[in-house]
Computed example of a mutant assay.
Amino acid sequence: MLVKWMRCGVVDQAGFDRGQRRWAALREQPGFRGQGGGWSRAQPGVAHLFAFWDGRRSYDAFMAGAHDGMAAAQQGSYEMLSVSLFEHRLDVKVGFLPTFTDVDVLRIALCKVRPDRVEHFTSMQQRVWNPAMAGSPGMLRGVFGQGPGNDFLVLSLWNSATERGKYREGAVARLSERAELDADVLSVAGDVVDVVQAWTV
């Protein structure tokens, strides 16, 4: 599975929102599995979107075909767009499905991992982080993906911001130490996203 992460600096929120609703046509695209997103809590005017595809072949076919026509509806509503692609490596909780209808908030973590620590980092994700998140009330599901170089994405889907806050307060420092996170990573950047259900495809 291929995960596409889009970050948009939006200048016309109403126009962007209207355009985002038109991506419902993605349902007709071969290999498309789902899309959702919303507004950043930390950065006003920044939207995060996640799309899921069977693999690179179906995604490339979409980009070469129908994409530009769909994207035209949002022209002028944003001034910055960055796109990152990640290959699925692990589920966070068993049986990940790219659905957002029951999701209130998303938690994004982008980890730049030291080249000689990739194997250890991936092992700790499987043995330490995943079980801890999977056992947290309110954590619905998530995905762990690898991007270009040694960039890794951890995306977790939560049914409430309150439950995600409890996990963060109680577990992150302890788990980081146990997983030797500081030895594995060069940097960790993250965000919390309030899901807009009207953008769910």
Results as ranks from 00 to 15, higher is better:
residue 156 S to K: 05
residue 101 T to P: 00
residue 89 R to D: 00
residue 62 F to V: 11
residue 73 A to T: 15
residue 199 W to H: 06
residue 197 Q to S: 11
residue 18 R to F: 04
residue 60 D to A: 14
residue 140 L to N: 15
residue 111 C to G: 02
residue 131 P to Q: 06
residue 65 G to T: 13
residue 22 R to N: 04
residue 92 V to N: 01
residue 147 G to F: 01
residue 18 R to D: 10
residue 191 D to V: 10
residue 68 D to H: 14
residue 194 D to R: 05
residue 56 R to S: 06
residue 115 P to R: 13
residue 180 E to I: 04
residue 60 D to T: 14
residue 80 M to E: 07
residue 15 G to H: 06
residue 133 M to A: 13
residue 187 S to W: 01
residue 192 V to F: 08
residue 161 A to G: 10
residue 128 V to H: 09
residue 47 A to I: 01
residue 179 A to G: 07
residue 156 S to L: 09
residue 116 D to Q: 15
residue 21 R to D: 02
residue 122 T to Y: 00
residue 117 R to G: 04
residue 117 R to M: 15
residue 152 F to E: 03
residue 133 M to S: 11
residue 82 S to V: 09
residue 59 Y to R: 08
residue 175 L to P: 02
residue 75 Q to W: 09
residue 52 F to M: 09
residue 186 L to Y: 07
residue 138 G to Q: 14
residue 38 G to Q: 02
residue 50 F to S: 11
residue 65 G to H: 08
residue 6 M to H: 07
residue 153 L to A: 08
residue 186 L to I: 04
residue 65 G to E: 08
residue 62 F to E: 12
residue 162 T to M: 09
residue 182 D to V: 13
residue 115 P to G: 09
residue 184 D to R: 06
residue 181 L to P: 04
residue 38 G to N: 02
residue 63 M to P: 00
residue 159 N to Q: 14
residue 158 W to C: 01
residue 137 P to F: 10
residue 51 A to K: 00
residue 187 S to F: 03
residue 173 A to W: 01
residue 199 W to S: 02
residue 81 L to H: 04
residue 121 F to H: 11
residue 136 S to H: 11
